[in-house]
């Protein structure tokens, strides 16, 4: 017989303070309290609060800030961090210049959630790992040093790239996969200067501190993203999402691909995957391999194998070692029309 003492449980639905500033400066000031958090769409944060995973003592509602514009700035499309997922997905500029982003957004969540969720919030959403959400099971991401339940547990949805001993969770976003593929830049305000972070460096791998999903610092606010316009990519891009049901489900794996063709030759290519790592996973080796090669099934297959070179599975997610390359190949086949 073993006497088990349970640690103090986190407290769901704790009451909290609420403020709604109207300027960026006031928002940053209001969020300086250690247990303050920004809220915009709330589609993940409110869920996390209900389950006691996150327990802010103050919410700083930033939806009054003027950060929802979508516009062309030179060779870039700027998207304000408060732009709604549904608005971005259907915006003329996005459909014309960044169809990959539009497709990825449409593949995410449901119409109602896309009407609430913002671009910045989408970037900040947390993993869907079942252990992360259950306060009675270990999770290093939720409760540092409590252990990882998934690694030797049920890990069908989990990472095959870049995981650590501490955490094998995946980032659940579709939008971010497209933005990573499209070489976006994240614009961050901190009250002094505007910080610019390449999208691929915004999210981090779990490493030894999986409690941190990304490199945003306390007291910083995402103001928007900039995405370079590439006319060729706009012509040939595709987001493929494989999931357990046809809609309203997180990805088993997803692939964002954009091609620039020169006849039958691939002049340039962008490839990223979702559902496979703690961050959107750029497939740079596969990209390098395919540049200047012909768009043939054999080349696609080899690129997919190269992409999976460093992949590892944890048991239940072993199928991803096959599903991931197959989805890459399928996406490239479709995109190249073969």
């Amino acid at each position: 017989m073993l006497l088990v003492k349970w640690l103090k449980k986190e407290a769901p639905v704790i009451n909290f303070d609420y403020v709604k500033p109207t300027t960026e400066q006031n928002a940053l000031t209001a969020c300086k309290d250690p247990l303050a958090q920004f809220i915009a769409g709330g589609t993940n944060l409110v869920d996390l609060m209900k389950r006691g995973v996150t327990n802010p003592e103050k919410l700083v509602d930033i939806t009054g800030l003027p950060m929802s514009n979508i516009e062309q700035k030179g060779d870039n499309i700027f998207i304000g961090s408060l732009a709604l997922n549904s608005v971005v997905a259907e915006h003329e500029l996005i459909k014309k210049h960044l169809p990959l982003l539009s497709q990825a957004l449409q593949a995410g969540a449901s119409p109602q959630i896309r009407n609430m969720a913002t671009v910045g919030g989408n970037m900040m959403q947390r993993t869907r790992c079942g252990y992360f959400y259950d306060l009675s099971m270990p999770c290093n991401k939720r409760t540092p040093n409590s252990g990882c339940g998934a690694k030797e547990g049920y890990n069908r949805m989990h990472a095959i790239f870049g995981a650590s001993d501490k955490c094998i969770a995946v980032h659940p976003s579709d939008m971010c996969v497209a933005l990573a593929a499209l070489d976006a830049t994240v614009l961050i305000a901190n009250g002094k200067l505007l910080r610019r972070v390449p999208f691929k460096d915004f999210h981090k791998l779990p490493g030894s501190n999986p409690e941190k999903d990304n490199n945003l610092l306390k007291g910083e606010l995402i103001t928007g993203v900039e995405v370079p316009i590439n006319a060729a990519f706009a012509q040939h891009s595709l987001y493929t999402k494989i999931r357990d049901r046809a809609s309203y489900a997180f990805a088993l794996v997803s692939v964002a691909a954009a091609l620039e063709m020169n006849g039958k030759t691939i002049k340039d290519i962008r490839l990223a995957m979702g559902g496979v790592a703690h961050k959107p996973w750029r497939l740079t080796t596969a990209e390098q391999f395919l540049k200047s090669k012909e768009a043939t099934p054999a080349n696609f297959k080899q690129a997919a194998m190269l992409a999976l070179k460093d992949a590892t599975s944890y048991g239940h997610n072993q199928f991803k070692l096959t599903l991931a390359p197959n989805t890459i190949v399928h996406t490239l086949h479709t995109l190249a029309g073969i």
Binding site: K20, P21, A30, D33, V60, D61
Partner: peptide, 8 residues
């Protein structure tokens, strides 16, 4: 520190 609350 009193939180800023300029909206309400």
């Amino acid at each position: 520190q009193q939180p800023t609350n300029d909206a309400e």
